[in-house]
């Protein structure tokens, strides 16, 4: 028998303290271009600098569409006017119609994850929520295989044509109150696939989205933050 008890005791608690304490470990987030602090302009045409057109607008008022950014760092490496970079992970934002759950539902939520044709990256990050480092069970968040029990529909991927029916059926099968969470740039805008010949341009074209989490892929903590925001448990 392996000495897993001893090993476990030796390694101690590795779970993040987030959200009770701030998580400051290195490399937990790919980050985004820091437009706000810099304003700034980009020397050159945007499409040359930013392949997914996440940076847009004219040189005086440059804007960032987080839903399109794939953290490619081309804007940072841009030799003329390098853009500075921020880390952090609390990126979740409600859409116009999105609201947190009513108070009575906040303590415990069940999540149905639908892979609507993603590359595997987002799904991998969502999967990490169940490991000892992030352990979302401690926050009362659980994955469920059946939409009949689910409160949150977590969608990754750009919604390929073949997954449209499944997604629609899953959404219809969920009881009220329900919230839809789009995770990753693909689910938000279509991402690098954009609206290709086999895929749509994000979830919102099919079903109403309540909360969006940008990133390609968003780190587990960003997803966790999104879930807590949806539960109304973040400040």
């Amino acid at each position: 028998m392996s000495n897993w008890v001893l090993k476990g005791l030796q390694s101690g608690v590795v779970t993040t303290r987030y959200p009770r304490k701030e998580e400051k470990a290195q490399g937990i987030s790919p980050g985004f271009p820091d437009i706000d602090s810099q304003g700034g302009d980009i020397n050159g045409r945007e499409e040359d600098v930013c392949p997914t057109a996440a940076l847009y607008g004219d040189s005086n008022s440059l804007k960032l569409d987080k839903g399109r950014c794939i953290h490619c760092f081309r804007c940072v490496r841009n030799t003329g006017h390098p853009v500075s970079w921020t880390s952090g992970f609390e990126w979740a934002s409600f859409t116009e119609k999105g609201t947190p759950f009513p108070k009575i539902f906040q303590k415990s939520l069940y999540i149905r994850v639908v892979d609507s044709g993603d590359c595997g990256a987002c799904l991998n990050e969502v999967k990490l929520l169940n490991n000892p480092l992030y352990n979302m069970h401690r926050l009362g968040l659980f994955i469920t295989p059946t939409p009949r029990q689910a409160d949150i529909l977590l969608i990754v991927g750009p919604v390929t044509d073949h997954m449209k029916t499944a997604l629609r059926k899953t959404y219809d099968a969920m009881p009220e109150p329900k919230r839809v969470m789009a995770v990753g740039s693909c689910a938000l805008t279509g991402g690098i696939f954009s609206s290709g010949f086999t895929s749509g341009s994000g979830v919102s074209s099919l079903i109403p989205v309540d909360i969006e989490i940008p990133g390609c892929p968003p780190p587990p903590l960003a997803v966790l933050h999104g879930l807590l925001t949806l539960a109304g448990r973040t400040k």
Binding site: P147, A166, K169, D172, A173, P175
Partner: peptide
């Protein structure tokens, strides 16, 4: 009461 089709795993 809301009536929805039975859950069949999302297949077509």
């Amino acid at each position: 009461t809301v009536k929805r089709p039975r859950w069949d795993g999302g297949i077509r």
